[in-house]
Design a protein around this nucleic acid. Sequence first.
DNA 1: AACGAAACGGACTGTCAGTCCGATTGGCTC
DNA 2: GAGCCAATCGGACTGACAGTCCGTTTCGTT
Lengths: 191, 191
Amino acid sequence: MTAEGRAERVDAARNRAAVLRATELLLAEGGGDHVSIDRVAALAGVGKGTVFRRFGSRAGLLQALLEERSKELREAIAGGPPPLGPGAPARERLLAFLDGLGAIAEGNATLLAAHEQACAEDKYDDPSYRSWHRHLSGLLAEARPDLDADFLAHALLAVFDGGLIRHVTPPDEPRRFTCAVRELATALLDG
Amino acid sequence: MTAEGRAERVDAARNRAAVLRATELLLAEGGGDHVSIDRVAALAGVGKGTVFRRFGSRAGLLQALLEERSKELREAIAGGPPPLGPGAPARERLLAFLDGLGAIAEGNATLLAAHEQACAEDKYDDPSYRSWHRHLSGLLAEARPDLDADFLAHALLAVFDGGLIRHVTPPDEPRRFTCAVRELATALLDG
DNA sequence: AACGAAACGGACTGTCAGTCCGATTGGCTC
DNA sequence: GAGCCAATCGGACTGACAGTCCGTTTCGTT
């Protein structure tokens, strides 16, 4: 959007930021169900139409927020230093990626859950999901050419479910999820 | 409900069946979004209140339908012949269970997706989910005592997602999903 | 200063889950 | 088979929400 044709008008940019910030607030305050477009718009001090023009839908709004939170990881993968970026052996890169995604997921379980809920079915066509899947499936194919990399990538990503993360994360062990994912991946890679 | 105190009145039983049948029909006709309680009630020829008294909520209705579809598997696990029922080695039982669950999931991807959608978050507290999880996690603990069976069971169940199943199932290969799950489980067990 | 395009906002629509209570009916008793 | 009561029924009603629409305002350019 920003890099398309004309630049964004300053009022548009201001509103976009206000809406995202309001969404964060409501999400933290009352969980995914608490984030209705009416509330977001009211809290951001903009009209409802503005939210929709900017983000297309409730799902798009949550998607945008998620994108913002995972931008760093995406850049580190594309052009950062190994083992996250290119250059490391597939196995190391894969584990580093899962660690990175796990950290994001653990820190944003509520947002993740709300997004899954809003996306309903088309989650698998979403560009963001596809990009994670492409990366993961490529690395898997390299590390374990004997297995069905495409499906396994879906299977690994399926574990990054907001509800599941909350369910398996006790208050005293906030990294349980990422550790368990790492164990799962290791078991698969070493098989 | 049926086995609690008094027996079900005949009109109640008739209506329950009519509602479930109507739900199936709407599900097949137009997918999960098409199943609204209003429509179900109208098609079943009952009032809306009846649906709610019987099933509690939209999620409960879908849950009940799912339960009906998996009753056989549940019974086979609890008291049927090996390898599904008790007696077979953990590894065989586990694979047989995943095959059975896969068959149900492949045949009911739409229902599964609708149920996930409706359950939102409390999916993991649902008695049906818990029972699958308990079974799977017990078998895993036996077959691979070195791994985190509790988490792995969640991870395997996470793959049984209506949307994912539809996404990975090409028309010409309806068993792709179950085969892939079996490969995944084998890789885990053999690691 | 003036003008056109882009952005705004909030009233409006259609839909849905879930509630409530007066009307009905099944099943038991005598 | 008459009568009774609790269980069941049905559908109007409520509150909330996603998404649309269009008259109004604002930005940025000339």
